[in-house]
Design a protein around this nucleic acid. Structure first.
Lengths: 218, 218
DNA sequence: CTTTATTTTAACGGGTTATTATAATAAAAG
DNA sequence: CTTTTATTATAATAACCCGTTAAAATAAAG
């Protein structure tokens, strides 16, 4: 029962494998080789085999990988065979949009509570949930077993709120605030910094245009 | 005038440098050493120096880096001294939330148009912009110089829409749809796959919990 | 002249890719 | 129908490369 540490580079690729395998499965594909999958996904076959092998031999020589089996295995590795309870902190535009995002539920990520400081928002209904005042967070967290908090508050209060969430025992934070959270080790954080993404696009647009200008003959 | 290719790993770090330098600047900090910045940001000083050096010597031995100068240099490298014109494709919850997101404008990312297929949404006002029917996309793109498209449509139509955007000459796409777009080379794509992020959190939650269980003495 | 701190160059390591070894499937032959 | 042979494709191992970190050389500040 040895457990070697899986690199985050591999973990980051798992959801994409999961997505492709799900599609293949829906199309009734029973089995697939790393070679065929590599063409489909635009990565090397070597990487695919190496990635899957991190978790044990899911494939069979001469046969390939059983799509349905592999799909469920990866789902299990990702913990998608268990439900996850979420809260959304910040019921502004983004928070509301996420609360209404149906696809999360399909994967077992269930929004159980929505909070905000704004008295104007408190009490409103959002997809069957009443927006609660942030003051009720601590007691709510005591009553419910919440795994993940989605943080969609302005950056000013984000660090403070994240600390509070950590104190309440939340295990992970999906952070949309444009600051680095400082939470105790063991609390997982995923940052979604949209302006960073736009900046990367901006850089790459200019890079590509400049590359065209000074293009070499090949 | 030699241009060596900058790795995307470095590019991905630039927005964070930019953010920290901006904060230091606002606090009136004039200069900073790679060592101090490394402590602040939680990365190695070596990496910081190596990163900045990719773009030429911004610092000075014995002095460090001038915060204001470096801030503007990185802004320039990222192309933030120029305005970028955006369109948002998909005026659902997420599209509306992003259209209302003020912070983009502060960095020079200006939303110029919002589109949707839904006749119910077309005509509504969104932050001074009238939501247009997607049929008007092509003509709109001809009249305006749009750099970036934000794609917030359901995954079913995303690939098709992305192709259309590419044909209209859009240079980059910020993709929120949960599919891989297949656009011609030269069109930059940044994916924001929120469910992937949740899956990574799910994996890391379980990994951490299991690690606690089978902890070794150290 | 000493200290600070970058620049430049070199070493290291992890992740990706390629190769070799192995095993199962599928086909062909007896 | 069984046995043999060729083919397919993973598992395991090795090589490679890029990104990161460290060290040495250099230059400015105090």
């Amino acid at each position: 029962m040895e457990e070697k540490e899986i690199s985050q580079a591999v973990v980051a690729r798992l959801p994409r494998y999961f997505r492709y395998l799900g599609e293949l499965r829906d199309q009734g594909v029973e089995r697939i080789s790393s070679g065929d999958l590599s063409v489909l996904m635009g990565v090397t076959a070597s990487q695919i085999r190496q990635d899957f092998n991190n978790f044990g031999g899911f494939g069979q020589q001469g046969y390939g990988y059983n799509v349905d089996y592999l799909y469920h295995e990866i789902g299990h590795i990702l913990g998608l065979d268990e439900e996850h309870q979420l809260v959304i902190i910040g019921a502004g535009n983004l928070g509301q949009a996420l609360a209404n995002y149906v696809n999360f539920e399909k994967r077992g990520f269930l929004v159980k509570g929505v909070f905000d400081v704004n008295e104007q928002l408190v009490g409103r209904q959002l997809r069957g949930l009443e927006i609660m005042h942030i003051d009720r967070l601590d007691s709510f967290m005591k009553e419910h077993k919440i795994d993940i908090a989605v943080l969609t508050v302005p950056k000013e209060g984000a660090i403070e709120t994240a600390k509070r969430l950590a104190d309440c025992g939340v295990k992970a934070i999906l952070n949309f605030a444009h600051v680095d959270l400082n939470v105790p080790e063991g609390v997982q954080v995923e940052n979604v910094h949209l302006s960073d993404s736009l900046m990367k696009l901006s850089y790459n647009i200019h890079r590509y245009e400049n590359a065209l200008g000074g293009e070499k003959t090949d």
